[in-house]
């Protein structure tokens, strides 16, 4: 995935049955972001695979003052990449989940 300078990871073990994920996002490469942001803070949030969209979460993060409007695309993309990865992992190994 193209590097947005942001990192998104599971904040908790994925139990695969729950549609709500606990994710954590932080700035790994501040140079890649346009707007002002707090770079030594990780933001933990829940993401529901069925009802939430990366763009919506990114918009809420901008509105909460975590990121600048110009970086909301990068935030949404980093969330989307991680969520897509998690969905693929879940499809591949339903047995061990």
């Amino acid at each position: 995935a193209e590097d947005t300078g942001l990192r998104v990871e599971l904040a908790e073990e994925d139990d695969c049955s729950n549609s709500s994920l606990a994710l954590r996002l932080w700035v790994e490469d501040p140079k890649k972001l346009k707007g002002k942001h707090k770079d030594n803070e990780a933001i933990e949030f829940s993401f529901n695979l069925e009802t939430d969209t990366p763009e919506e979460v990114a918009y809420e993060m901008v509105r909460s003052g975590f990121f600048h409007e110009s970086d909301s695309k990068a935030v949404a993309k980093s969330i989307r990449d991680r969520v897509t990865l998690i969905k693929k992992t879940r499809e591949k190994k339903p047995a061990s989940c």
Partner: peptide, 27 residues
């Protein structure tokens, strides 16, 4: 930890905590 801050936005809860130094230099 005391540095953890909870921010509510449009019904979603964001928990802000410091990133461990080790994670920052990992990339």
């Amino acid at each position: 930890s005391s540095l953890t801050q909870v921010v509510h936005s449009a019904g979603r809860r964001f928990i802000v905590s410091p990133v461990p130094e080790s994670r920052l230099r990992e990339s």
